[in-house]
């Protein structure tokens, strides 16, 4: 069975890409009015963190690479 952690990795990669993309777009075209603490660019850092975590989980638990059945 495909590991649940693989599914989670894929979802995180997709979410990370969307959030990072939206944050980069926000740097170019800032929303009006901007959210509170907009200057911290939390979306960019958070999106990148999610993307990296997702990539690690996707690669680590990918079915073709694991070569074993994960029941979890």
């Amino acid at each position: 069975m495909i590991s649940i952690w693989f599914f989670i990795g894929v979802v995180l990669v997709l979410d990370g890409l969307i959030i990072t993309g939206a944050a980069v777009y926000g740097l170019v075209v800032p929303p009006a009015p901007p959210p509170v603490l907009w200057g911290l660019h939390a979306g960019l850092w958070w999106g990148l963190l999610i993307l990296v975590m997702g990539a690690i989980y996707t690669v680590k638990y990918a079915p073709r690479r694991s070569g074993r059945n994960h029941r979890d």
């Binding site: 990072t20 959210p35 939390a42 979306g43 999106g47």
Partner: peptide, 15 residues
């Protein structure tokens, strides 16, 4: 959520 989150993060929060 709406106070701190721009479009991308707000989407994640709603998710």
């Amino acid at each position: 959520l709406a106070r701190y989150c721009g479009p991308g993060l707000l989407g994640l929060g709603i998710t």
